[in-house]
């Protein structure tokens, strides 16, 4: 009996000490970690829009984030869009509720400052003030809208879908006509050297410049990647003089309407990325068309 108590006590003490150490470190590092994550997303967004150190983003480029929530009570299920709005030059957020048929239900002012909106707890408390029980809300996804000089430049869609092993997290950039501007793989756990190659330029850049019409029927083909196409896809990495401008235009138009070439030894990963991208875009275009028509119909002063 004495032995048991001693074991229990020493185990409990070691657990408490370990928990204390981990908790302290977490508390100290949490803020810096979140900051890094935001920076990382921001950098990826700029990268997808074609800006980098050599070609910095213009000062009138603005990024707005829209959050989609699912709002339910016992009977009905609606979609709630948290959209950035500007009332007499003051920027804020409104919740736009749309039913599943795409009809406008209501619009609610939210009490949240634009600089706080990126934090999930702040969004929750703002929403809780206008959505009272029994209605509940669940976060669905977010969209970043890039605007350059008064015009929409791109939609940036963070998304996730199952890969060969676990979920693959991506960020997609679409231009206003829903052509793919770029694809970035944010996180994945595919096998290194096989499925892991999805993050390589020669795979992910194949999605670049595919039109919306093409995306709808996009397939994966099991053919070897042609050499000139490989050079074109990897052009960002290699020196510019390896491939001339004229050649780039030629190869671009030649392969623009081709399907996606599968990775050697990773057909399933290739296929899941293609299907995932296709699904994200199809769903998004359907929703954004409804949202735009509701915004126009209700004359909501959105900033994007």
């Amino acid at each position: 009996m004495k032995e048991i108590i001693r074991i229990v006590v020493s185990l409990t003490v070691s657990c408490i000490v370990a928990a204390f150490v981990m908790g302290t470190v977490f508390a100290i590092t949490d803020k810096a970690k979140k900051h890094n994550e935001h920076l990382n997303v921001h950098e990826t967004v700029l990268g997808l829009l074609g800006y980098n150190k050599a070609n910095p983003a213009p000062s009138d480029l603005r990024l707005f984030t829209m959050y989609r929530y699912i709002i339910e009570d016992e009977k009905t299920k609606n979609l709630g869009y948290m959209v950035p709005v500007a009332h007499e030059d003051k920027e804020g957020y409104e919740l736009l509720v749309i039913n599943l048929k795409g009809e406008f239900v209501e619009r609610l002012r939210l009490d949240i400052a634009p600089e706080k909106v990126a934090e999930e707890p702040d969004r929750k408390s703002a929403l809780r003030a206008v959505i009272k029980p029994p209605r509940t809300f669940t976060y669905a996804d977010s969209t970043i809208i890039a605007k350059l000089g008064g015009k929409r430049l791109a939609y940036l869609l963070p998304g996730a879908f199952p890969g060969f092993k676990t979920f693959i997290e991506v960020m997609l950039a679409l231009d206003p006509s829903f052509k793919i501007m770029g694809l970035e793989i944010m996180e994945h756990e595919e096998d290194p050297g096989l499925g892991g190659e999805i993050e390589q330029a020669y795979f992910k850049n194949q999605f670049r410049d595919k039109s919306f019409e093409k995306i709808k029927g996009l397939k994966v083909v099991k053919e070897p990647l042609p050499d000139e196409y490989f050079r074109y896809l990897e052009a960002d990495k290699t020196k510019e003089d390896m491939i001339s401008r004229k050649e780039i235009a030629e190869i671009k138009s030649k392969y623009q309407d081709k399907d996606i070439y599968a990775l050697t030894g990773a057909t399933i990963s290739s296929r899941s990325v293609t299907v995932g991208v296709k699904t994200i875009i199809k769903k998004f275009t359907y929703r954004v068309n409804i949202l735009d028509s509701v915004i126009a119909g209700q004359r909501i002063p959105v900033t994007f």
Binding site: S14, A18, V21, M22, V25, F26, I28, T29, D30, A32
Partner: peptide, 17 residues
Amino acid sequence: LTIATWVTVIDLVLAAY
């Protein structure tokens, strides 16, 4: 427990700084 603690600490510190 010791290993897990150190792994978590290193993971958090790396992610932050």
